[in-house]
Simulated scan of single mutants.
Amino acid sequence: RVNLVSLLRETLIDILNDSRYADKSIELQTNLEKLMLNLDAILIRRAVTNLILNALVHNDPDVKIVVQLEQKERTRVTIKDNGKGIEEEELEKVFDRYY
């Protein structure tokens, strides 16, 4: 069992502590202080980190990233940015490894 709120917070802090990303805008939005779930912390951290780093690398330097965590009937983690987006013809390939 892992506190997903803490895991997300620590993941964002780790990224922002990297000198390459220290001046970037990455925000965690949630009204939860604690959300205990059965999950693989290593894989969740890897997935969130990959999504955030992709947003940082493939956008302008002033990109703003928001990580939202909410729990209703399901737990939802949403990662959004105000970047340029993905071309429609490339959307079907985003889950291809190393694309």
Rank of each mutant, 00 (worst) to 15 (best):
D60E: 13
V67Q: 06
V63M: 01
Y98Q: 12
I65L: 05
E73A: 11
V66P: 00
E90R: 13
V77L: 15
E88G: 01
T78N: 06
I86C: 08
M36W: 05
N38S: 14
I52W: 03
I65F: 02
N54Y: 14
T78E: 06
T78V: 13
V67S: 04
D62K: 11
N59K: 04
I79L: 08
D81W: 03
N54D: 11
E90I: 01
A55Y: 02
E88M: 06
L35D: 11
K72R: 12
T78G: 03
E90P: 00
I44G: 02
L69P: 08
A47S: 15
N59C: 09
K72E: 13
L51A: 15
T78H: 01
D81P: 02
D96L: 14
L37R: 13
R76S: 00
L53V: 13
K84A: 09
E73W: 00
G85P: 10
T78F: 01
N54W: 07
G83L: 05
L51Y: 05
L56E: 10
V57E: 15
R97K: 15
D81Y: 03
K64T: 06
D40P: 08
K80G: 00
M36G: 05
L37E: 13
G83T: 10
Q68H: 07
E87T: 02
N54G: 15
I52C: 03
L91W: 05
G83E: 09
N54H: 14
N38V: 12
E70C: 04
V94P: 08
Q71C: 10
L35R: 11
A47Y: 09
V63H: 02
D60A: 09
G85E: 07
E70I: 03
N82G: 09
V77P: 08
F95W: 11
